[in-house]
């Protein structure tokens, strides 16, 4: 039982927390601007490398470099939106999707040019895990879980309690109605990009702390993030976060030895396919997601 918690549930929750943050960012942009942003994964990588620059320059911990990562990612998202997405605002979602794919390639190329292809780490030294009744929780995992919880809380407060958040939700529910009732569309779009980019940078740093930095760091989890967003009902950030947690747990638990003879349900080399499997299942059985997404 303890083995299940230590080696499957806790890693599953940590991965799920990263997916949840990434998926909430994808879902927000989808809700307000109605397109699947394929550059979100590379925004995550960008944030993770920006934190690495901070770690290298000031000798701080990656946690302390998180604000730097956010500060480097938000202007990038604004610039990209202004240069490439804004002129296509009235185009089909398919065109915006392809455009965001081009943006993804450009951001990835910049990361390669600046840091090269070799994997890197933040050099976060070893610290003894927190032990409680045989449950082992790595400190970095504890920070990631707490950080994700805090981010979710802040997102909730923003969307539910502030005027700007309500404007965002109004845009997501009915853009034309929002426009004629005087919601400032430009401001809402800028705010959406800021929140989405901040979530991306946070998810990127957390993922890089848990694994290692590569230029494909974010892109490799982008599909899981989309799967989580669709699972939760696209355009619903809360649903996306829940979807992320479910996917992270499903991915880790898929290699738990449950079959007789100690074989796992799924060979671990196919672990990354779990997200797609769940995605296809959801799309077939309940395409609107757990919570009704937008059409």
């Amino acid at each position: 039982m303890l083995e299940l918690v230590n080696f499957y549930i806790i890693p599953g929750l940590v991965l799920g927390a990263v997916y949840a943050l990434a998926a909430a960012g994808v879902s927000l942009v989808y809700g307000v601007m109605r397109f699947a942003n394929f550059a979100h994964g590379d925004l995550m990588s960008w944030g993770a490398y920006a934190a690495l620059a901070g770690v290298a320059a000031f000798g701080i911990s990656p946690w302390a470099a998180l604000p730097l990562a956010v500060a480097a990612t938000v202007p990038l998202a604004w610039g990209v939106d202004r240069a490439f997405f804004a002129p296509l605002r009235r185009a089909q979602p398919a065109v915006l999707l392809i455009s965001s794919f081009g943006v993804a390639l450009m951001i990835r190329a910049l990361i390669y040019l600046a840091w090269g292809p070799t994997p890197a780490t933040y050099g976060l030294g070893f610290s003894p895990p927190i032990l409680w009744e045989g449950v082992r929780l790595q400190r970095r995992h504890a920070v990631i879980l707490a950080g994700a919880l805090l981010a979710a809380l802040l997102l909730h407060l923003l969307l539910a309690r502030t005027r700007a958040g309500r404007a965002m939700r109004a845009m997501a529910d009915d853009p034309d109605l929002a426009r004629i009732t005087g919601v400032g569309v430009g401001g809402v779009i800028r705010l959406t990009w800021a929140v989405s980019a901040a979530l991306a940078a946070t998810a990127g740093v957390f993922l890089a702390v848990d694994t290692e930095l590569t230029p494909l760091l974010g892109f490799n989890v982008l599909l899981a993030a989309f799967a989580a967003a669709i699972l939760g009902g696209i355009g619903r950030p809360w649903g996306a976060a829940l979807g992320g947690l479910i996917l992270g747990l499903a991915e880790e638990l898929s290699s738990y030895p449950v079959l007789p003879g100690g074989a796992p349900l799924l060979d671990p080399s196919y672990k990354t396919a779990v997200a797609f499997g769940v995605l296809i299942l959801v799309l077939l059985v309940r395409p609107q997601g757990l919570f009704r997404g937008m059409g």
Binding site: A83, F84, L88, V95, I98, S99, F101, G102, V103, A104, L105, M106, R108, A109, L110, Y112, L113
Partner: peptide
């Protein structure tokens, strides 16, 4: 990597 960047940029310019 520069080529990767240009492919992305070319796509934007065409769109």
């Amino acid at each position: 990597y520069f080529r990767l960047f240009l492919i992305g940029l070319a796509l934007q310019v065409i769109l």
